[in-house]
């Protein structure tokens, strides 16, 4: 059976994500993946932990980026703002595949939007609250 839930999810635009992520009291690093899609698109991202800028104007995807230790990020907010521009001439799909690891569980969420015109840009916003 095709994964209907996934197919449905792909058909719906979602450019904003607000969620929680459980951390523990350890000193283990919490890391994020921010994989930009679809093929050939251009992106720029800024990542903040509360008001502290962790990464400014980063181009493209990000893999295993450490945002801090479990114990140090509790009760803090991770904010990611990304602009994705549809450069590919083959399709108009834009998206972000976002995941977190290093806390209590793995977390994954995909955001996407099919733009109407070639060259359009989309602002994506992700906010994660870390709790214990």
């Amino acid at each position: 059976m095709p994964n209907i839930k996934l197919l449905f999810k792909e058909a719906v635009s979602q450019t904003s994500l607000t969620d929680v992520y459980q951390v523990d009291e350890s000193n283990r690093l919490v890391k994020i993946n921010l994989v930009i899609g679809d093929i050939g698109q251009a992106s720029i991202s800024t990542i903040k932990l509360d008001d502290e800028v962790l990464l400014n104007e980063h181009l493209g995807s990000l893999v295993d980026f450490s945002i801090g230790r479990n114990s140090a990020i509790v009760n803090r907010f991770l904010n990611i703002t990304t602009i994705v521009t549809d450069v590919s001439q083959d399709h108009n799909r834009t998206g972000i595949d976002f995941s977190i690891k290093g806390g209590v569980n793995l977390y994954h969420c995909a955001l996407s939007k099919q733009v109407s015109n070639q060259g359009d840009s989309v602002g994506y916003k992700i906010e994660i609250f870390f709790y214990q």
Partner: peptide, 25 residues
Amino acid sequence: NTKINEDGNVELEGTEAFQTAKKIA
């Protein structure tokens, strides 16, 4: 956040940078 993001995207579309990037892309 959903509302702010929606409005942010609407405002983004009206900017000169959006149109310039669109032409370049």
